[in-house]
């Protein structure tokens, strides 16, 4: 029993890290642009579908870690340039919410058209197991968690140490003053939207060898991502990591001792409890 609990907790950490990376993308876009990006799940699915095509055509999944972000950067740039950039400052959040909802449909249906409705899968790029708490655990999953943490770490370093990161933080605090100080605010907005979208695509790319790839797989993660972002405190990256880990770990732990569906219910109740105690979210920044 203890071994099973330990394995479930490890599994919870793995999914928590991936969920954190995807949710950081969502919170980055909200914190900076105040866009509730409903299309984030569809972007995650596109990351997985791109990984499938890269893996099939080039023979190695590893290339998709580079190609998926590039594909998503192009898509995000098109989305932003075509509509969102005209509707950010001075418009209610509902406007961008509706726009992103529309893009969710467009992206999902385009993916269905190209990819088809049948589930596909990518061979595990690291088909080895490691002995863990008396059981076996896939090494690839550990890699996926480590990669997600590395990406989040790199993002935090980028925001904290680079000039562009400084611009992003400055624009986040007060875009009018930042603009008066010479920060190219429209470019910062576009870059942030692309960066957040890339994190969703990377999440899909990492998950692709662990699950089945479908045109609508974004629905599987988007709800959890929103829960994480709300509980974390809108715009807080460290809070997002903590909230994602709490959600995944509680689900993992309780699923050992009870029906996993009930376990999910309990983990959501825990999240509601946190929000009750800290309505502003786990962390402010």
């Amino acid at each position: 029993m203890l071994n099973t609990i330990a394995l479930s907790l490890v599994n919870g950490v793995v999914w928590g890290c991936i969920l954190a990376m995807v949710s950081v993308g969502l919170t980055l876009i909200y914190g900076q642009l105040e866009i509730i990006n409903i299309a984030h799940g569809a972007m995650y699915a596109i990351g997985a579908v791109t990984a499938f095509y890269v893996s099939t055509l080039l023979g190695s999944w590893a290339y998709s870690l580079l190609i998926s972000p590039l594909v998503m950067a192009a898509i995000a740039m098109a989305i932003y340039g075509s509509s969102l950039r005209y509707r950010i400052v001075g418009y209610p959040v509902a406007v961008t919410l509706i726009i992103s909802y529309g893009f969710m449909f467009i992206l999902e249906q385009l993916t269905l058209l190209i990819f088809g409705g049948a589930p596909r899968c990518i061979p595990n790029p690291l088909p080895y197991e490691v002995g863990l708490f008396g059981g076996k655990y896939p090494i690839y999953r550990i890699f996926a968690a480590a990669f997600s943490l590395a990406v989040i770490g790199a993002l935090l370093a980028f925001l904290g140490k680079t000039k562009l990161g400084l611009w992003i933080r400055a624009t986040n605090q007060d875009h009018d003053t930042a603009s008066a100080m010479g920060v190219p605010v429209p470019t910062v907005y576009m870059f942030t939207f692309i960066l957040g979208s890339i994190l969703a695509a990377l999440g899909g790319t990492l998950v692709a060898p662990m699950t089945s790839i479908t045109h609508n797989m974004g629905a599987e993660i988007i709800i959890d991502s929103f829960i994480v972002v709300i509980v974390a405190g809108f715009g807080s990256i460290p809070g997002t990591i903590v909230a994602a880990l709490i959600l995944s770990l509680t689900t993992g732990f309780f699923s050992v001792i009870m029906d996993p569906v009930l376990a999910k219910g309990i983990s959501l109740a825990v999240m509601i409890g946190i929000l009750y105690l800290k309505p502003e979210g786990i962390m402010r920044y």
């Binding site: 899968c121 595990n124 197991e129 059981g135 076996k136 896939p138 999953r141 089945s212 479908t214």
Partner: peptide, 15 residues
Amino acid sequence: TADVVKLVNQAWELG
């Protein structure tokens, strides 16, 4: 569909 693919692959992953 997708759940079959996930189930079969993840069962194998778990040994």
